Computed example of a mutant assay.
Amino acid sequence: MGSKKKEIALQVNISTQELWEEMLSSKGLTVVDVYQGWCGPCKPVVSLFQKMRIEFGLDLLHFASAEADCLDVLEKYRGKCEPTFLFYAVKDESLSDEEECLSHEKDDGEDEDVVSSEKTCTLAIIKPDAVVHGKTDEIIVKIQEAGFDILTHEERTMTEAEMQLFYQHRAGKEVFEKMVHHMCSGPSHLLILTRAEDTKDVVTAWRDLMGPCDPNVARREQPESLRAQYGTEMPFNAVHGSRDREDANRELALLFPSFKFSEEDIEAFQGTEAEGAAGPTEAHCIPEDMN
């Protein structure tokens, strides 16, 4: 019974304007899952929220859900079918100057686990099907020969919670469970890719190197692409790439939470500049389709 109470308290349902204002005045970061009455809140993210609150604490991280039809402030989100999350940040004014200084020092790169780049980056995943067939090294060589710089390279077996959130735009579709199961079936290799500034945009260049999503189509249309050479059939197409720059930033933030984006990427990801401590800052994220 105790665990049930914790699960209920994890995500507050906002049903009135008063509760909305109270939640958004909370110090720290508040994440609001805006849902439609006919489909309900996004269930796959609940386990991830629980993990994050355990890791980061309860004081400065808050999760809530709100039905778009119940609040006038959410009128522009009514009738949408995509999962929608709103992020509101309120600075804690009680943070001492000394604590702020320590925080900035850590952000400046003293933490060895923090990866940063001043260049535009994208996520590349060598999927479990290519890894299990021993093709990882070959693919990495081809990535480097194509002019990409590998900023970081990590072997990892994905968790179900991560992949449910990663593919949340496909939740409810027949392919959803198959994709989640495949990505959790064994180790993947996660890479953060960059390119020289005077070359093609890194997101577009990586998608061109991967080729069409379906390996059979790739073999017909782009026989030299990675999916044509190493993929077999859907969803075993060897590699993953973000659809566009916004999607790349979202995926990197999910799988590499300590990654520090360039200023240009931050502006693209947030859409608008932060308003500072004068009031809550809202960032709107609707996951895009991905190959």
Rank of each mutant, 00 (worst) to 15 (best):
K5N: 06
K5Q: 09
E7H: 05
I8K: 07
L10C: 12
I14F: 09
S15D: 15
T16P: 08
Q17I: 14
L19F: 08
E22H: 07
E22Q: 13
K27R: 03
L29E: 04
Y35F: 15
G37M: 10
W38E: 11
G40H: 07
P41D: 13
C42H: 12
K43S: 06
V46H: 03
F49E: 04
F49I: 03
Q50G: 04
M52Q: 10
G57P: 05
G57K: 04
L61S: 08
F63Y: 10
A66F: 06
A66K: 01
E67Y: 04
A68Q: 00
L74F: 03
L74A: 02
G79M: 06
P83C: 09
P83Y: 06
T84F: 09
T84A: 10
F87M: 06
F87S: 02
Y88V: 05
Y88N: 05
A89C: 09
D97W: 10
E98G: 15
H104A: 15
K106V: 15
D108V: 06
E110K: 13
D111G: 11
E112N: 05
D113N: 14
V115Q: 01
S116Y: 02
K119G: 10
K119W: 12
L123D: 00
I125V: 14
I125A: 01
D129W: 01
G134M: 04
K135Q: 13
Q144W: 03
A146F: 02
I150T: 12
L151G: 13
L151R: 15
H153S: 15
E154Y: 11
E154A: 12
T157F: 02
M158G: 03
T159Q: 02
Q164H: 02
F166D: 00
Q168D: 08
A171K: 12
G172E: 08
K173A: 12
V180R: 00
H182K: 00
M183F: 01
G186A: 00
G186V: 01
P187M: 05
L190S: 02
L193I: 10
A196T: 12
A196D: 12
E197L: 09
D198L: 05
D198A: 11
D198S: 10
D201F: 06
V202L: 03
V203K: 00
V203R: 00
A205N: 07
A205H: 11
R207L: 10
R207Y: 07
D208T: 12
M210Q: 12
G211E: 01
P212R: 02
C213P: 01
D214W: 03
D214C: 07
P215R: 00
N216D: 11
A218N: 00
Q222G: 08
P223L: 09
E224F: 09
E224K: 12
R227N: 04
Q229N: 15
Y230H: 05
Y230N: 05
T232E: 11
P235Y: 10
R245G: 15
D247T: 15
R250L: 13
E251P: 03
A253E: 03
A253W: 11
L255R: 01
K260C: 14
K260N: 09
E264N: 14
G271D: 05
G271F: 03
T272K: 04
E273W: 10
E275H: 07
G276F: 05
G279M: 15
G279D: 15
T281D: 13
H284Y: 12
C285K: 01
P287F: 01
E288Q: 07
